[in-house]
């Protein structure tokens, strides 16, 4: 199981770095479950959502799953706007 803390902002500025780091961790540890902790996150854009979609696909391809936890109302609304709340495991 991999737990990863998402930074305060996940936008076009830092999303390439976050994506790279997460993907390398998953490929090295190959966890059944990956948990992304959003407790510090106050901002996410489509760039950030794109990472979550990529990780979801990677995890399901390997038979595992991604869990998103502790996101605030604003962040959840953005997931909802994209329709991601129906396809991702969001624990609130």
């Amino acid at each position: 199981m991999l737990e990863y803390k998402i930074p305060e902002r996940l936008d076009a500025v830092n999303s390439p770095d976050v994506e790279k780091e997460l993907l390398s961790k998953i490929s090295s540890e190959n966890p059944q479950i990956t948990i992304c902790d959003f407790s510090d996150t106050v901002y996410i854009s489509s760039a950030g959502l794109r990472i979550m979609l990529v990780i979801t696909k990677v995890m399901s391809k390997n038979g595992g799953k991604l869990i998103l936890k502790e996101m605030n109302e604003d962040i959840y609304n953005i997931f909802k706007m994209a329709g991601f709340h129906t396809i991702m495991n969001i624990e609130r």
Binding site: S46, S60, M81, A82, T86
Partner: peptide
């Protein structure tokens, strides 16, 4: 915004966000 994650195209979401 309705398809399963596996079938989603990445991109185009930004415009959707702006509109909403």
């Amino acid at each position: 915004t309705d398809s399963p994650a596996e079938e989603r195209e990445i991109g185009g979401l930004g415009i959707h966000f702006i509109k909403n």
